[in-house]
Amino acid sequence: MSDATIDTTKGIEGVVEDWSADKQTFGLPWGKLMMWIFLVSDTFIFSVFLISYMNARMTTTAEWPPTSEVFALEIAGQHVPLLLIAIMTFILITSSGTMAMAVKFAYEGNRKRTFQLMMFTAILGASFVAMQAFEWTKLIVDEGIRPWENPLGAAQFGAIFFLITGFHGMHVTAGVIYLLVIALRVRRGHYENKGYHIVEITGLYWHFVDLVWVFIFAFFYLW
């Protein structure tokens, strides 16, 4: 056990050797690895939220309200289920696309484009939050749903809906602020020497928030 070199044997052994070698375990910048680990931890938070939601929905004593009606929009007398959510989901997924492009331009050193795309991503994110606020208002004002009571059925519906979408909305809001800060710094040329990994790190966070939304969408609106 005393030689400084490691022979990289093949197969599983090789993988283990390689992984535990004295170089960095992952070929990633520190910040990026740390973001990944944080996101895994955050995944646990959202999973616990969603599992609690499923548990509540299955065990609660009162009826769960009919989601396709609660989440419908009334347009020109027409009852359109899921319209708002479809738009919100579309916006968020589009923002993932613009973010991915921002990362590409960042690595190409195109500061202007990066800045623009990040700003655009932030605007999409902000409009998502705005629509969420609209939906909340509708539920609260029109339908009379509160965290502690719900005229349409189980009280847990309002509680857990506001809690999870609120928590996700906070993530999006934080993401928007994060994007703005980094975008402004990119424009100022703050990262010329350090390299543009930070844009990708921001992107990781942003994609994560989008991905979580897909799950929330599926479990709340489609179930």
Partner: peptide, 28 residues
């Protein structure tokens, strides 16, 4: 990093049960 999230979430839910009267953990 994987276990504390469960405590965090339950702390938040209990706080809400306590402060604004949600019923995450509270039966009739």
């Amino acid at each position: 990093l994987f276990a504390f999230p469960a405590l965090l979430v339950s702390a938040i839910m209990m706080l809400l049960d306590k402060t604004i009267g949600t019923s995450f953990f509270m039966p009739a």
